[in-house]
């Protein structure tokens, strides 16, 4: 007599397709991926602005003008702004969910968070793209050296 075959338990058995959203998985992954990229972006930012040259004391309008005249630093700062804000906002979302007990408090705080973050990201993006290092009529002594040309 042929040996009877028993189908493996649970195999091919799906009561229904999973409808769970993958959002939290992506958020978790994003925290790690953005974190690793941010190490490079933020350490580079601190090295150039706070360590090199005369550190904080070199920071002025001309210094920013000099950096953002270069697309390399525009892209650097733009990516750093977006990654840090998304990473920070998602981290704050987690923390709010951890400590709020009433859904109303949670929604109110998270809504405030999203509005504040949205404003900062949009403002920062506009500033990086619309910045003019040599505004007309400005005191030339305050501008980057290439403005005198």
């Amino acid at each position: 007599m042929a040996t009877p075959t028993i189908p493996a338990p649970r195999a091919e058995y799906d009561r229904h397709k999973t409808t769970r959203s993958q959002f939290e998985l992506f958020a978790w992954l994003f925290m790690r991926l953005s974190g690793v990229v941010l190490v490079i972006l933020i350490f580079g930012h601190l090295f150039v602005n706070l360590w090199s040259g005369s550190g904080v004391h070199q920071l002025d309008f001309g210094f920013v003008g000099g950096k953002w005249a270069n697309p390399f630093w525009q892209i650097w700062d733009l990516v750093m702004l977006w990654l840090a804000m998304l990473h920070g906002t998602n981290g704050m979302r987690t923390i709010i969910s951890d400590y709020t007990e009433k859904p109303g408090t949670r929604v109110a705080l998270q809504l405030t968070l999203y509005i504040a973050s949205g404003i900062v990201v949009v403002l920062g993006t506009l500033v990086v793209f619309t910045f003019n290092p040599c505004p007309t009529g400005a005191d030339p002594s305050l501008l980057a050296s290439f403005c005198k040309a």
């Binding site: 920070g88 906002t89 900062v120 920062g124 506009l126 910045f131």
Partner: peptide, 22 residues
């Protein structure tokens, strides 16, 4: 993480002053 987040909000605002005037 929380400390850095609040500093970043302020830091983007202070940097945005480059669009106001030198």
């Amino acid at each position: 993480g929380v400390g850095i987040f609040f500093f970043l909000l302020v830091h983007v605002l202070d940097t945005s002053l480059v669009r106001v005037s030198p």
